[in-house]
């Protein structure tokens, strides 16, 4: 737990959206603007940035709180340094996934998306209802989403969780 990885900040910076992390001067406007922080003090953007800069890799990536960001972009808009913390959080979460930390709801969503191409299945019953309301038929998804997930080997990436 206490082992530090001094290069962690560079790993974050190399992920898409993560490059802003090095610009932080710790003013804390992100934390002051955060609606999640207002409810749950366990989630604190400024603290997460400090932990990354200090190299607390395992503690950050294995934590539950990194998944609490609502992606409202309040921090991103107000940051005087252009850190784009919402994007930095996505970079951190992408790294956590590569380490095998994927919350169950995401695994379930990916499964649904693979099967139906959308988060909801639109079946014959739905289409009958839609017709009754004058809405056009929704064709079954043609498997593009599934194909893309196979191309990027998403399943292999998230299944690493089970190997641990």
């Amino acid at each position: 737990m206490t082992e530090l990885s001094p290069k962690f900040k560079y790993e974050v910076a190399q992920e898409p959206g993560g490059e802003g992390i090095k610009l932080c001067f710790a003013c804390g406007i992100c934390t002051a603007s955060c609606p999640i922080r207002a409810i749950d003090e366990g989630y604190n953007p400024r603290r997460i940035i400090r932990m990354v800069l200090l190299g607390m890799k395992q503690r950050v990536l294995s934590s539950d709180f990194i998944w609490f960001c609502s992606s409202c972009y309040a921090c991103t808009e107000r940051c005087p340094q252009g850190v784009k913390f919402t994007d930095v959080m996505n970079a951190i979460k992408n790294l956590a996934v590569k380490q095998g930390y994927v919350p169950t709801p995401f695994v379930q969503q990916i499964d649904i998306l693979k099967r139906f191409g959308r988060l909801y299945e639109i079946d014959e019953f739905d289409n009958k209802k839609r017709a009754g309301f004058g809405l056009p038929k929704v064709e079954k998804a043609r498997g593009f989403t599934k194909k893309i997930m196979e191309m990027t080997e998403l399943e292999q990436i998230i299944l690493r969780k089970n190997e641990k």
Binding site: E15, P16, G17, W67, C69, S71, M89, N90, A91, K93, N94, V97, V102, F106, Q109, I110, L113, G117, R118, L119, P136, E139, A141, R142, F144, T145, I148, M149, M151, T152, L154, I157, I158
Partner: peptide, 27 residues
């Protein structure tokens, strides 16, 4: 105009895997 090859925009995948998100949106 309704297109029958629209699927999920990729938003739910952005925090999990950026490349998949990008491909889903781009398609």
């Amino acid at each position: 105009v309704d297109l029958d090859d629209f699927e999920c925009c990729g938003f739910p995948i952005k925090s999990v895997h950026y490349e998949t998100f990008m491909m889903m949106g781009a398609r």
